[in-house]
Amino acid sequence: MKFTEDTRVKIPVILHLVRLGYQYLSLKEQQWDLETNLFPDLFKTAISKINPGVADADVDRLLADVKLTLDNDDLGQAFYSKIADRSGTKLIDFENFNNNSFHVVTELTYKNGDEEFRPDITLLINGMPLVFIEVKKPNNREGILAERDRINKRFQNAKFKRFVNVTQLMIFSNNMEYDEGDVQPIQGAFYASPSYLEPQFNYFREEEVLNWTALLKPLSDETELNVLKDNNLEVIRSNPEFITNKEPNRPTNLICTSLLSRERLAFVLR
């Protein structure tokens, strides 16, 4: 069996995110706006839920307004203002954060013309692709450096402006512990916010003792099998390395818990 970042990191992380409360969606069954990667059906359902009584026409107008803000040369400031706005029709319910919708997808293509990139994992909040995660297999020092170079080039590319503007947080990991001897962040799990120049990779060291029982939901055999089947990886289910990498204290799972569990994500987005 050939072990890649998919089998060693991506699929275990997706399953961990499911335990954190994100619903896995197969892209084979979804439709989305290719210009922005907004998911209109998810967006409209979520906005109607968190804004009781809002008219369908108003939700349609809000979606159109959101798309327009992503064309601005403002690093997403206008879009973020809409996210943070608690008056009028809300994009995110911060008063009852669990009232929002949370989905995880894999290999969502970010494409404009003949140029594209495809993050390993994308998180949708109310149908909006606010977070993406790139993973590399362990013991691949060049992997993080190469990924950093790629993301720098992508974010400097005006063709990807809408995708930069909609993104609020990025995570990069090779599923290894930090190497304190490295001058540059190469080994470990890092996070960054968008930039039109060079996003800064940051360490995250958890100070709290996390309550896994409270934070993580049980993972059903049916859900795990559905994720594996959708990625054509049922064969790895009983592999010891795969089982180990599902543990919550693995580096990528740990940073996802620290930054993407409901309470932390609400704090980050505000």
Rank of each mutant, 00 (worst) to 15 (best):
N175D: 14
S173V: 03
H103G: 01
F39C: 13
D85G: 08
M170L: 11
D120E: 09
L225R: 10
I171W: 03
S220L: 01
I83D: 04
N152I: 12
Y24W: 06
L216K: 01
Y110M: 12
F39T: 14
K136N: 09
R270G: 15
I171P: 00
Y191C: 06
D221Y: 08
I133W: 02
W212T: 02
D85Y: 08
D182K: 09
P185N: 10
I11H: 02
N99Q: 10
K82H: 12
R8E: 13
N232G: 08
E263T: 14
D230L: 05
F242S: 01
R162Q: 11
L42Y: 04
D41P: 04
L27P: 02
G53F: 03
N165D: 06
G127T: 08
D179S: 12
L20P: 01
N99G: 13
Y203E: 10
Q30R: 12
N226C: 07
F132E: 02
L27G: 08
I236L: 10
P248Q: 03
P129F: 01
R19P: 00
D114S: 15
C256H: 02
N174F: 03
D41F: 07
D6I: 02
T36W: 04
W32H: 08
S238H: 12
D58G: 06
E107T: 09
L17Y: 00
N253H: 02
D74S: 04
F242Q: 05
I92P: 00
L108V: 00
P52F: 06
G88S: 04
N202W: 08
T252Q: 05
S193C: 14
D41W: 09
P185K: 00
L219W: 00
P52L: 06
Y24G: 01
F267M: 13
I133Y: 02
L145N: 11
F163P: 01
R141I: 13
V135H: 07
F39G: 06
I255L: 08
E198K: 09
S26N: 11
K153M: 14
P248N: 06
T106P: 07
N140Y: 10
T69I: 01
S220K: 04
P138F: 07
T7A: 08
F97N: 07
T7S: 11
L68C: 11
K161L: 15
L25T: 02
K2Y: 14
Q156A: 14
M170P: 01
S220H: 05
I125L: 14
A158E: 15
S261K: 14
G88Q: 05
W212I: 07
D120L: 05
P194S: 09
G21E: 03
T122Q: 06
V183S: 10
